[in-house]
């Protein structure tokens, strides 16, 4: 029990569970299954972008990818336009989404490296260009996704949404990558001290490049799935994921200063973020109160969770 409580990610799960219980208590257990499935589905999208953002944040202070929303939008738009509703082209569409991610990731790191721009500004400038490209390809069109893919993203297997299962699979892969491969050790070392990592002979540039690539690809795949889930790509579909991707990583117990990350916390935080909003909706509060409560709860969680980091130092 004590070892469990000392895990940095446990708090996000405790928070998510208590919000879930508070909502269920209010509805009298009326929509337990529906609420849980919706929470898992929407959390899965946050988890996908959150994992990518987590790898980037691991790299150390100042490393944040702000191009996530634009990449999601562009990948969703371009792949839906290519598939044009034909089920035979699903894999091609996925390949195109991944290709968009690869391009954005490469360009992001090219700016960071070649121009020595701080990553926040580099990815911000890049996101402007990517967003423009998305506006240009979208042109107000609303193309329906292939039926088979739309079904896959909205249906459940064994009572669990397919999207959540997929995100779980990717999370396990990310956990293995972070904790059981040299790459995971390397990026943690870079996050703890870049000069020290360089002196230890770690290929700093290569690893940072792969990390930005990974983040952009995950964002692109998430955009592809989200566009299919919501029945078409919209230009603002990524916007809420900018703050969300950062928030779930940090609430999940990953150190913002980098070098110390964990995957399970992202799940707890993603579920928590969705459940808070739906709890406040259930209570029938207005938009203003809902926003305020969301902010207050985020700050409270950070304050509570900060006790342990303060002790470590």
């Amino acid at each position: 029990m004590k070892t469990l409580l000392s895990r940095p990610w446990i708090w996000s799960f405790i928070a998510a569970l208590s919000v879930w219980l508070a909502t269920i208590a209010f509805t009298g257990g009326a929509s337990t299954v529906g609420l849980s499935q919706a929470a898992l589905t929407f959390a899965a999208f946050s988890v996908l972008v959150g994992i990518g953002q987590m790898f980037v944040i691991t790299l150390g202070p100042g490393n944040i990818d702000l191009s996530v929303p634009a990449t999601m939008t562009l990948a969703g738009t371009v792949s839906l336009k290519y598939m044009d509703g034909q089920s035979g082209l699903i894999l091609h569409g996925l390949a195109i989404a991944v290709g968009v991610g690869v391009c954005v990731g490469m360009l992001n790191y090219a700016l960071i490296k070649a121009l020595r721009i701080p990553p926040i500004i580099a990815t911000l400038s890049m996101s402007f260009i990517v967003q423009s490209a998305a506006i240009w390809t979208n042109r107000g069109l609303r193309i329906k996704p292939p039926q088979a893919l739309a079904d896959f993203t909205t249906q459940t297997s064994f009572g669990i949404p397919n999207i959540a299962l997929l995100a779980l699979l990717i999370s396990v892969a990310a956990w293995v990558l972070l904790h059981r491969t040299p790459y995971g050790r390397w990026i943690a070392a870079i996050g703890q001290s870049l000069p020290a990592a360089r002196m230890a002979g770690i290929a700093v540039d290569g690893n940072r490049f792969v990390t930005y690539l990974l983040c952009a690809i995950l964002a692109a795949v998430c955009g592809y799935l989200l566009a299919c889930f919501s029945g078409g790509a919209a230009l603002n579909m990524g916007s809420e994921y900018l703050l969300m991707s950062i928030a779930v990583v940090v609430i999940g117990g990953t150190a913002v200063a980098g070098g110390n990350s964990n995957v399970p916390g992202i799940w707890g935080a993603s579920l928590f973020m969705f459940l808070v909003v739906s709890m406040l909706n259930t209570y029938g509060l207005g938009a203003g109160v809902r926003l305020m409560m969301t902010g207050a709860i985020i700050i409270t969680v950070i304050l509570l969770a900060s006790g342990r980091t303060a002790n470590l130092r």
């Binding site: 944040i64 703050l243 950062i246 928030a247 940090v250 609430i251 913002v256 200063a257 207005g286 938009a287 203003g288 109160v289 809902r290 926003l291 305020m292 409560m293 969301t294 902010g295 207050a296 985020i298 700050i299 950070i302 304050l303 900060s306 980091t309 303060a310 130092r313």
Partner: peptide, 30 residues
């Protein structure tokens, strides 16, 4: 002061505050 005393990440605290300000703004001027 809080960010310094509790050693909090300013990005996250201000992120949370952005929801609070937005909520207050909506309440004042729906």
């Amino acid at each position: 002061v809080i960010i310094y005393l509790r050693n909090l990440p300013s990005i996250v605290v201000t992120l949370g505050m952005s929801f609070v300000w937005a909520g207050l703004a909506v309440l004042i001027l729906p």
